[in-house]
Amino acid sequence: MPTIPIFSSQLVVTTIVQSIEALGFPNIAGRVFSREQAQARQEANLKVNTTKLYTQGLKNLEQQELHPAIQYFTATIKLNPQFAPAYNDRGVARYRLGHTQSAIEDLTTAIELNPYRAKYYSNRGFMLTRLKDYTAAIADYNSALMLNPNLAQAYFNRGSIRLQMENCLAALADFESAIRLNRDFAKAYFNRGLTRYKLREVQGAFEDFQKAAGLFKQQGKMDCYQDAVAKLRKLWY
């Protein structure tokens, strides 16, 4: 019988396959794959459970059920300590209950876990403003606007701080940015009117109060409307 030639490439493949089987590598590969599957399942379950707890917390927060919201956000954090949104929203709930310091601590943790979310800085800046820590609040708004320069509310809040600190030119620039991003931002017109009045731009202040009054009335904010009308009367007479 003639001998069937074995080409070198066939010989190499045959030898490799046989060597792996002899050493038991298929069993090792199976165990590794099994561990990877188990880890993947564990991560998937963690994600599902985290989402369930966090979503329920958000529902409670939306309905102003603040204590249950905090409980769900805390449970989320215990399950997944690296989940930054839960710290942010627990901080919001705590702030609404008047626990400003612990709320700021939560926002600080959220920022440490994810320093690229503008709203975390904006939320902490708002809370720091209530503690009259204006320098730190402005720094947070600066960070928020660097990450997202389209936040009308952040410009307005920073401008309001600057107005209170008598930095009128910087405040004016912030209110103008807020208005550019949101043409119906009644409070921004009102505060720009206050700023212009301080800068002795009386005509510009009158126009801003007039615009603010119209928007407040249209939006059903009658107390704010009356404030704007009072400013107009003061300028008119």
Rank of each mutant, 00 (worst) to 15 (best):
T3D: 09
P5D: 13
P5N: 09
F7I: 10
T15R: 04
V17R: 15
V17D: 12
L23Q: 14
L23M: 13
G24T: 10
R31G: 01
S34N: 13
S34C: 09
Q39N: 15
R41S: 15
E43V: 09
K47G: 15
V48R: 09
T50Y: 06
T51Y: 06
L58R: 09
N60C: 08
L61G: 09
L61H: 05
P68H: 04
Q71Y: 06
Y72A: 11
T74Y: 03
L79N: 12
N88L: 05
D89N: 15
V92Q: 03
A93E: 07
Y95H: 11
R96Y: 02
G98S: 10
G98W: 07
I104H: 05
T109D: 02
E112Y: 00
L113H: 00
P115G: 07
S122I: 05
R124C: 11
F126G: 13
R130K: 14
Y134N: 13
Y134M: 06
A137D: 11
A137E: 12
I138Y: 06
A139G: 12
N142Q: 12
N150H: 15
R158V: 05
L163D: 10
L163W: 04
A171S: 14
S177R: 08
R180M: 03
R183M: 04
A188H: 01
F190D: 08
F190R: 01
G193W: 00
T195E: 01
Y197A: 02
K198V: 08
K198G: 02
L199A: 10
E201Y: 09
V202H: 07
A205D: 08
A205V: 11
A205P: 07
A205T: 12
A213W: 03
A213L: 07
G214P: 09
F216Y: 14
K221G: 00
M222K: 04
Y225F: 12
R233G: 07
K234A: 12
L235F: 03
Y237I: 04
Y237T: 11
